[in-house]
């Protein structure tokens, strides 16, 4: 059994600009009206890198930022990025270019297409030389990212930042992978409790695959949860927003949350 503490939370989605500003919606105390994705600033990136970065990368960087308490230095924090599709926009453009006679890919396009682009830009933005990994696990990307992050924090007795993010692919891939909307979540996990601790997470594995247990009461949020791999985190975020205990299931993973009073 892994036991860690949630030290910070971030979230970005349509009409959900941040964890702080969306807490009432997540807690079910305010209706979710949907809306636009907030403007993605990635203000921490140097200007040249920001110009070259994709919307997917800026989404990941903005949500990562939200989970860091002010007294935590990003340069000290190992990171786990997880995304089913990664840099969907760039990958589409490369496929289009490769279907032409010229096959002229731009160098920037190519290095931006790697699955760990967001991780690389985050490292440049923060100056962090800490370990960083990038996972892809289709619809289980959030759950497997959570397991990796919590396991690393637990085993290496440290703080690790989880960043889960996905953008819907562009047409024509969208038809084969119909995601509803962009969504991203970040959790700073630590092996030890601190004054920032919002909850204690326990993670175990069961032999039975129970599927995803934990749905959102609000129809809009439930559609979002089902429509983006990163949004599978919503039931956990809702429990954190309500400061209530929860028992969740992601496939074989059993995730327990106990709020820190």
């Amino acid at each position: 059994m892994i036991r860690v503490f949630v030290e910070g939370v971030g979230m970005i989605g349509p009409g959900l600009s941040s964890w702080k500003e969306s807490r009432e919606i997540l807690a079910g105390r305010q209706a979710y009206a949907g809306g636009e994705l907030p403007r993605l600033l990635a203000s921490r990136l140097p200007a040249a890198e920001r110009r070259r970065s994709t919307a997917v990368t800026r989404l990941a960087i903005d949500v990562a930022e939200q989970a860091l308490p002010p007294d935590v230095n990003a340069g000290d924090i190992a990171t786990v990025f997880t995304s089913s599709g990664g840099e969907v926009e760039i990958i589409h453009r490369i496929f289009e270019e490769l279907a032409t006679v010229e096959r002229q890919i731009s160098p920037t396009q190519f290095h931006n297409s790697v699955h760990n682009a967001a991780s690389g830009y985050w490292s440049i933005a923060t100056g962090s030389r800490q370990a960083s990994t990038s996972l892809s696990c289709f619809d289980d990307s959030f759950a497997m990212g959570l397991l990796e992050t919590a396991g690393q924090a637990f085993v290496e007795d440290t703080k690790v930042l989880l960043v889960a993010y996905d953008f819907p692919p562009l047409d024509p891939i969208l038809r084969a992978r119909p995601l509803l909307a962009p969504f991203a979540v970040s959790l700073l996990l630590a092996s030890e409790r601190s004054e920032h601790s919002r909850g204690e997470l326990t993670i175990g594995l069961d032999t039975a695959n129970a599927g995803d247990i934990g749905h959102m009461d609000d129809a809009g949020l439930e559609a979002l949860r089902a429509g983006n791999p990163a949004a599978r985190s919503l039931p956990l975020l809702a429990a954190l927003a309500r400061s209530e205990p929860a028992e969740l299931s992601y496939g074989q993973a059993r995730v327990g949350l106990k709020p820190c009073a």
Partner: peptide, 17 residues
């Protein structure tokens, strides 16, 4: 196999990670 499964994609360091 039925244990946890994941793929690491960090370009050319992937299969060391």
């Amino acid at each position: 196999l039925q244990g946890p499964a994941s793929v690491v994609s960090t370009a050319c360091s992937s299969s060391s990670k």
